[in-house]
Amino acid sequence: MFRAGRQDEVGAPIRVTLIIDTGADSTMLNDQLMRSLGLTPTSQARVITSGSRGVPEPCDVYDVSLEIKGSATQEPWRVSPVAVLARPLVNQGTDGMIGRDLLRLGVLQYDGPKGTFSLTYP
């Protein structure tokens, strides 16, 4: 992982579990995870979530690079620094979600009868 606009390494890569959320505008990671990496927010945003009852809530934004690994035969997808929202994700069973900001860069196919999906990218 690298800070946006800099080439100095921030720390060792960490593995996270993300869900794909086609209803989310933005990619989001657990705020505790972001703080544990020692990253500094680059800005703040106000977001409406399912729990905010229509009222925008403030959240920190971090510019991070991501490496998304698919199947064992697929090369990892390296995403240049992208703005990632940091929100509390308590009892979610996941470290965050991939939103449409990243999904728009690839092709997502869902096979309902089989209950499977594939995400291909450049």
Score class of each variant (00 low, 15 high):
G93D: 03
E67R: 12
M1L: 04
D63S: 04
E67D: 00
T116D: 00
S26H: 01
V64E: 00
L29R: 06
R78P: 12
I68P: 02
G11T: 10
Q44D: 13
S26K: 03
F117Y: 15
T40P: 14
Q32F: 14
A12K: 00
I48G: 10
P56C: 07
D25S: 12
D101P: 00
D111Y: 13
R15M: 06
R100H: 03
S71G: 12
W77R: 08
M28R: 10
A83V: 05
Q7N: 04
D63A: 15
N30S: 15
R46M: 11
P58A: 00
V84A: 02
R6F: 07
L33D: 14
E75T: 13
V84Q: 14
T49L: 01
Q92S: 11
V55Y: 04
V107K: 09
I68W: 09
L102D: 09
A4M: 13
S52L: 11
T49W: 00
K69T: 11
V55A: 08
S118W: 01
P76N: 05
S36C: 09
A83M: 08
M28F: 05
T73L: 00
D8K: 14
V107R: 15
G70V: 05
M28I: 15
M97K: 06
F2N: 04
R87S: 06
F117C: 07
S36M: 03
S43V: 12
V61E: 15
Q74N: 13
L29K: 12
L85A: 00
D8F: 13
E67H: 02
M97N: 00
N30P: 08
V47N: 11
S118I: 10
L39K: 06
I98H: 01
G5P: 09
V61F: 12
D111L: 10
S43R: 03
T27P: 04
I98T: 10
L108T: 01
A72P: 11
R15S: 04
G38F: 10
M34H: 03
S71F: 09
I20K: 13
I68D: 11
M1G: 03
R78F: 04
M97F: 14
S26R: 02
I20C: 10
S43D: 15
L89W: 05
L37E: 08
P113T: 10
T94G: 06
P76E: 08
G23P: 07
S26G: 06
D63V: 13
I48H: 10
R104D: 13
L105P: 01
T40K: 12
Y110G: 12
E75C: 04
G115Y: 09
S71T: 15
Q7P: 05
G115E: 03
P58S: 00
V10Y: 13
K69A: 02
P13E: 12
M28Q: 02
I68Q: 05
L33R: 11
S26Y: 15
G51R: 04
Q7K: 08
S65Y: 12
W77C: 14
W77M: 14
V16W: 08
T116N: 02
P41E: 03
R87D: 11
G5K: 10
G96C: 01
E9I: 07
G23M: 07
V107D: 00
P56D: 02
G38N: 03
R53T: 11
D8V: 07
G5V: 00
I14R: 08
V107Q: 09
I48N: 05
R104T: 12
G38I: 11
M97T: 15
T27F: 09
A86M: 08
R35H: 08
